[in-house]
């Protein structure tokens, strides 16, 4: 069972339906105990950094997320769900989960912000996660105003250009974060999610 974390505002329906469509059983949950019994965890996200962190702390989900991620369980943070994995964000004052060291910064106001629409994701290294995806023109869907700056460049798994070259995917072992929305990126997005699900099976 894959736990999709519910912390209020986000659109959980699309990611759940996408995973179910790929054959996974999904549980939308705000309970830390469900996280510990899940085989993988997805932290989706839209909304504001501080508000999300406040809810995660209040519900005890923050600790449960850290335990899942550090315990080696396949973990995927999407969009704000990826940003929350970092130490902090310029968007707010709250500390993040600190699973990745680094901060989250706003795009230059010289560009149109939000960075909204389809952009190319460039893979930095070979990985089973990219199986079946084009290396050069891998279009994914983005909708965000902030982007992560990992302190450890080694965790950058893919980059995208929007005024700056930013980390559109990070990975350390079992913990993945994507700035793009695989659940909204059409066929390529579904292939990516399928590869994530296969990560769980190889784990088991």
């Amino acid at each position: 069972m894959i736990a999709v974390i519910n912390y209020g505002a986000g659109n959980l329906y699309s990611i759940s339906k996408a995973l179910e469509g790929l054959g996974a059983s999904v549980k939308i949950t705000d309970s830390p105990s469900v996280l510990s019994s899940a085989s993988a965890v997805v932290l989706p996200g839209v909304g504001a950094f501080d508000e999300a962190m406040a809810i995660l702390r209040k519900t005890g989900l923050a600790d449960a997320i850290k335990r899942s991620a550090e315990g080696g369980k396949p973990f995927l943070g999407i969009c704000l769900g990826m940003q929350l994995l970092f130490s902090g964000s310029e968007e707010g004052k709250s500390k993040g989960l600190g699973i990745f060291k680094g901060t989250v910064r706003q795009f230059s106001r010289k560009l149109k912000v939000p960075h909204m629409g389809w952009n190319v994701v460039r893979q930095r290294n070979q990985s089973p996660l990219w199986k079946g995806l084009p290396g050069r023109r891998c279009w994914m869907y983005f909708a965000h105003s902030f982007y992560p700056i990992p302190a450890d460049k080694e965790v950058i798994a893919a980059t995208t250009d929007y005024g700056v070259k930013f980390a559109s995917m990070v990975r350390r072992d079992n913990v993945l974060g994507t700035q793009f929305h695989p659940e909204k990126s059409g066929t390529y997005g579904l292939i990516f999610l399928k590869n994530f699900l296969e990560l769980i099976h190889t784990k088991e």
């Binding site: 505002a9 986000g10 659109n11 959980l12 329906y13 699309s14 339906k17 996408a18 869907y141 909708a143 929305h181 659940e183 909204k184 990126s185 059409g186 997005g189 579904l190």
Partner: peptide, 26 residues
Amino acid sequence: VFIPFAVGGGIRNIKDIGVLLRSGAD
């Protein structure tokens, strides 16, 4: 359908917005 979509028409308040987003509108 797994591409983004917007919904408009007849939305009056925060409650309407919340319902649509939770139902899968982006």
